[in-house]
């Protein structure tokens, strides 16, 4: 069992060398986690403004998360498939041979699958993590506590993404983390300006 897994990992490393999976997967991971966090922070803010019950936050958040997962997997699968097919066709023309049944073809298939999964699961996991306080502690915490913890987790993930980018580019980790957090704040502020007025009017 363990040797099988080791073999699969070795195979995936080989495929990675051929199809350069990690480079694209990293980009997709950051972009889509970022998307997921901002979307769910938006859901949180919107729910907070109209003072929604926790179960509404959960269903809206999970709904958004599932939609992002499906859109991520589907979209990345199709675009990546098309891109890889084109590359293989060009390479087939250059090498004068069929490549689909070769290591190159198999590496391309693996790349498509891995990238599609990362693209879909990244925003979904981000959504689940942010919604965790609502999912797990809705009986133990007050509504405003849950909102605060959830939002903090969202900003925490944003900061971690910045750290990840900072390490990737070998630049300042703190600067990148803060830029990410700023994105969350900007998104929140714009939503607040758009929604806040209406909500205040509705409450009054």
């Amino acid at each position: 069992m363990i040797s099988e897994i080791k073999e699969k990992i070795k195979l995936l490393k080989d495929y990675n060398k051929i199809a350069k999976i990690d480079k694209i997967a990293r980009r997709y991971f950051v972009m889509n986690t970022f998307d997921g966090v901002l979307a769910i922070l938006g859901v949180l803010l919107g729910s907070f403004i109209v003072n929604s019950e926790p179960r509404v936050v959960i269903s809206t958040g999970i709904g958004a998360g599932v939609a992002m997962a499906v859109s991520g997997i589907w979209g990345a699968y199709l675009t990546e498939r098309a891109e890889r097919d084109r590359e293989i066709k060009e390479l087939e023309r250059a090498t004068l041979s069929r490549l689909r049944e070769t290591k190159i073809g198999r590496a391309a298939n693996a790349a498509v699958l891995v990238i599609a999964l990362i693209d879909g699961l990244a925003p979904f996991l981000a959504a689940i993590i942010i919604l965790a306080p609502f999912l797990l502690f809705s009986s133990a915490l007050s509504s405003s506590q849950m909102y605060i913890i959830s939002a903090s987790m969202g900003f925490g993930i944003l900061f971690m993404l910045g750290v990840f980018l900072g390490r990737m580019s070998r630049e300042s980790i703190l600067k990148n983390g803060l830029i990410m957090i700023l994105a969350g704040i900007v998104s929140g502020a714009v939503s607040f300006l758009l929604l806040g007025g209406n909500a205040a009017a509705a409450r009054a």
């Binding site: 060398k17 051929i18 250059a94 004068l96 490549l99 190159i104």
Partner: peptide, 10 residues
């Protein structure tokens, strides 16, 4: 005649 990847190392 070979593509650049996989390299001649592999």
């Amino acid at each position: 005649l070979k593509p650049h990847e996989p390299s001649i190392l592999e």
